[in-house]
Write a protein that binds this DNA or RNA. Structure first.
Length: 874
RNA sequence: GGGCGCGUAGCUCAGGGGUAGAGCGUCGCCCUUACAAGGCGAAUGUCGGCGGUUCGAAACCGUCCGCGCCCACCA
């Protein structure tokens, strides 16, 4: 350190090369953090806890940019809290993701030409565990690369033993409370995955279909029904009409012939039918449509299933063995042959449900399944948000949440899969249910069999906030870290996961909601705002960008795009920009080290500091306060942007540049500035650390000699503000900018020295003369000085000797343009101030602002006029 | 069919009653000993259209147009 700070030339500063090479430093830094136990969470600690769980990634492969984004936000939050002195727990783990993972492994098997049935259940599950090992390894590798400060020793998996215990315990509790039951209902069946899925696992999309109108009945007693799923007619057990529909009143209660069968079915009156729609008569297939099922229940109709689990027709006869699509066209053809198609098929776009995992069209099917009775659970979950015990951020999302929990149907939790938590229910020889749970063995003897189904994967992830802490055991960790402080997750799983955690958390933890705040983020999109997907070819492996630009660059880019609840686009150029920022911080710190910036000891008294020093410290503390406020509101984009501009624009481009002459001159003023520069960098690096942990760690430890910025103290606003210094430096900036502009306009090479006479009216500018001269390459005036351009800026005058090189015409034109603008500005301001209504109604600060604007305009006019007058004749 | 949100610089997005902002991109000049992954300077918008409220509207209200998302049992 000491050696380092004595160096004067970059060539002899071996510790920090001129370019930041992230790939070389990130990996070792991360492992050091882990070894030192920074990320561990101690349940016995006296510190206030800060808990956040990872939304457990599915073990279906590797992490994508969406995970990188989410992890960046969570990691930044916890790193800040850790620096603030909280006992932080960032709970890691993964999700077995039942159907998703099973599908992935089945696809792998298919490559070998095998199906899961070739292996059998046990071997298949073994195979999935093997897959889980590989996928899990990749995922944790990516998390380390990203810098996720998780408590690795506490890593959990939704299928590990403790969590299985939790699953069985809550299942039993719910069953005993009659909140879990078994019933035969219409469920969403995926004929490809061969399992039931819950309502939210169905994705509806508008598909093109054909609506055919079919005449049912014989002779006078006929009516016409329309359908897009003609094949289901084989299972029709009624035709329904509206009770008030005069057209059909005479038929209600009668039996009419069902075409293609030897059955006749009743016409029933049911208010569900919309008489305005189609013909006003609806075919009723209770075994294959949820609405029809309900009509069937109301009218005591039989349920006739016509398809098996593969959606193949099972009704004996000509259609048996056809799959549903073949059956559809074949049946329509047969009906047409009988003259029963009254209106030809017409194209019809309608909403069709698809399996969210494999996109296969769902077949509604009557089936015996296990259900969670959600009523009381959902009520509690809604109330917890309604009464403010749990906050949803951004608040607009609350509406969606209420919409969901207030209108929830019972949750089908059984899945006909092999990978997952097997349902802890045994059936006796006569099919009677014996439950179960972790503490009960099934009765000894023959004939008892366990349910072969597994639970919906969200059943176990719904327990995540407390199952990971040891529940149902009343562990120290549970006491310390439940409820979670905040949940950070995507709005896309608000219903799947968040609402379920709310329901289960409140239920299992005696009414204590699982978290205080739910912070929802958006989805990562490509640089054009398009959804990322593998098939579209715009998906990015986060590792590629991390290898190329560093983890910090990726994290900073993602954080900068993170407006609450809004999707975040990202493109490679932007990551590159963030890498440039990291490099900029790197080099600014090198500069500070080379110039002997110090971090030891108290800050100098205000009276000892230059206006430049006071200005930057004033700004620094303002930024500290801003960043804190933004963190509390999950405004990652804002806080990242504030830090970016403060560091780059204010500290690096102005403070450092203005201080160079001070450093060069040496003496007491230089010592003061060295301390200030050290302070500013020290604090800025700490502020940046949660978002860009790696580069800040290297720089901060080098600068301060501290152990690690991970455990450094989070900066506090000292309260220091100096409005006078801020104003003074703003004036200096104006002066410098104006002269730079002039130089550029006049085509003066940036490096070219120009003799100049600086007249600094009043004291404020005098101390800055040396800095200004250096920044602007202004030399002392020579004997032959001939002022050819004069630029008075807010109390200062700069006369430049341009030795006749000035382009007078161009400058005159420019000045005239500016003068016109200033005059217009003055006119507008005068008009406003002359407006009675404005003066009467506008608030004082607005009026003052306009007055200020007028004054500024007048000053500009005077200055510009003077400049014009001082221009030599062309 | 309901609900929510969005249309602001070439692209992606902040902002939100008191003179239009950022990043990236573009143009010009510079390797000025922290940094060319850099410095300095510049250009760029009828803030989707039309009405209304207001002293003042990109912002608030209405309406229309164009997008997106969520929910829903339209056969």
């Amino acid at each position: 350190m000491t050696e380092n700070t004595q160096q004067q030339h970059p060539a002899t500063t071996p510790e920090l090369p001129t370019q930041y090479a992230p790939a070389e430093v990130e990996g070792p830094l991360y492992e050091r953090w882990v070894e030192r136990g920074y990320f561990d969470a101690d349940a016995k600690s006296d510190k206030e806890p800060f808990t956040v769980v990872i939304p457990p990634p599915n073990v279906t492969g590797s992490l994508h940019l969406g995970h990188a984004f989410e992890h960046t936000l969570i990691d930044a939050l916890t790193r800040r809290k850790r620096m603030q002195g909280y006992e932080t727990l960032w709970q890691p783990g993964m999700d077995h993701a039942g159907i998703a993972t099973q599908n992935v492994v089945e696809r792998e098997l298919a490559k070998e030409g095998k199906s899961r049935h070739d292996l059998g259940r046990e071997a298949f599950v073994e195979r999935v565990w093997q897959w889980k090992g590989e996928s899990g390894g990749q995922i944790s590798g990516q998390m380390r690369r990203l810098g996720d400060g998780v408590a690795w020793s506490r890593e959990r998996f939704t299928m590990d033993e403790g969590l299985s215990q939790a699953v069985q315990t809550i299942f039993k509790k719910l069953y005993d409370d009659e909140l879990i039951y078994r019933a035969e209902r219409i469920i969403n069946w995926c004929p490809r995955c061969l399992t039931a899925i819950s309502d939210i696992e169905v994705e509806y999309q508008d598909d093109d279909g054909e609506l055919v109108s079919i005449r049912y009945g014989e002779g006078d007693e006929t009516l016409v029904v329309a359908t897009t799923r003609a094949e289901t007619m084989l299972g029709d057990t009624a035709v329904a009409v509206h009770p008030e529909d005069e057209r059909y009143k005479h038929l209600v209660g009668k039996l009419i012939k069902l075409p293609l069968t030897d059955r006749s079915i009743p016409v029933v009156a049911d208010a569900h039918v919309d008489p305005e729609f189609g013909t006003g008569a609806v075919k009723v297939t209770p075994a294959h449509d949820p609405n029809d099922f309900e009509i069937g229940q109301r009218h005591d109709l039989p349920n006739i299933a016509v398809m098996d689990e593969h959606a193949v027709i099972t009704v004996p006869g000509p259609f048996q063995g056809l799959d549903r699509l073949e059956a559809r066209s074949t049946i329509v053809a047969a009906l047409r042959a009988e003259g029963r198609i009254v209106a030809e098929k017409r194209p019809y776009t309608h909403s069709v449900g698809h399996c969210s995992r494999c996109k296969t069209t769902i077949e509604p099917r009557l089936s015996m399944q296990w259900w969670v009775k959600v009523g009381p659970l959902a009520k509690a979950a809604g109330d917890a948000v309604r009464d403010g015990r749990v906050k949803i951020h951004p608040q607009e999302m609350e509406k969606r949440y209420f919409d969901w929990v207030d209108n929830l149907h019972d949750w089908c939790i059984s899945r006909q899969l092999w990978w997952g938590h097997r349902i802890p229910v045994w059936y006796g020889p006569n099919g009677e249910v014996v439950c179960v749970g972790p503490d009960e063995e099934p009765p000894a003897g023959e004939g008892w069999t366990q349910d072969t189904d597994v639970l919906d994967t969200w059943f176990s992830s719904g327990l995540w906030p407390f199952s990971t802490l040891g529940w149902p055991e009343r562990t120290e960790s549970l006491a310390k870290f439940y409820p979670n402080s905040v949940l950070v997750t995507g709005y896309d799983i608000l219903f799947f996961w968040v609402a379920r955690m709310m329901m289960f958390g409140l239920y299992a933890m005696d009414g204590t909601p699982p978290f205080h705040t739910i912070a929802l983020h958006g989805m990562v999109r490509d640089q054009f705002g398009k959804k990322m997907s593998k098939s579209f070819g715009n998906a990015v492996n986060p590792l590629d960008w991390m290898d190329k630009y560093g983890s910090d660059a990726l994290r900073f880019t993602l954080a900068r795009g993170a407006n609450p609840g809004v999707d975040v686009p990202i493109g490679e150029d932007w990551v590159q920009g963030s890498r440039n920022f990291a490099n900029k911080i790197w080099n600014a710190t090198r500069f500070a080290l080379m110039n002997g910036a110090t971090v030891e000891g108290p800050l100098p008294e205000a009276a000892e500091m230059s206006a430049t020093d006071r200005w930057i410290l004033s700004r620094l503390n303002t930024v500290v306060a801003e960043v804190d406020a933004y963190y509390e509101d999950f405004q990652f984009a804002k806080l990242s942007d504030a830090l970016f501009h403060f560091a780059w624009d204010e500290v690096f481009d102005w403070y450092v540049e203005l201080s160079k002459t001070t450093f060069q001159a040496g003496g007491p003023a230089a010592e003061v500035s060295k301390r200030v520069l050290g302070e500013v960098l020290d604090v800025t690096l700490r502020l940046l650390h949660p978002v860009v942990p790696f580069v800040t760690e290297t720089l901060w430890t080098t600068l301060t000699g501290g152990e690690s910025v991970v455990v450094a103290e989070w900066p506090a606003d000292s309260g220091f503000r100096d409005a006078g210094a801020e104003k003074e430096i703003a004036s200096v900036q104006d002066l410098v900018t104006e002269v730079r502009r002039f130089r550029a306009d006049q085509g003066l090479q940036p490096g070219q020295k120009v003799p100049a006479r600086l007249t600094l009216d009043g004291t404020p500018f005098a101390p800055h003369e040396a800095a200004v001269r250096q920044l602007l390459r202004l030399q002392p005036e020579g004997e032959s000085f001939a002022a050819t351009a004069t630029l008075p800026v807010a109390g200062a005058t700069v006369a430049l000797d341009l030795s006749g090189t000035i382009d007078v015409a161009a400058e005159r034109k420019r000045l005239a343009k500016d003068l016109a603008a200033a005059q217009k500005e003055r006119q507008q301001a005068e008009a406003k101030l002359g407006n009675e209504a404005f003066l009467a109604k506008a608030p004082d600060h607005v009026v003052d602002k306009i007055r200020g604007r007028l004054a500024k305009a007048e000053e500009d006019i005077a200055r510009l006029q003077a400049q014009l007058d001082n221009l030599p004749a062309a």
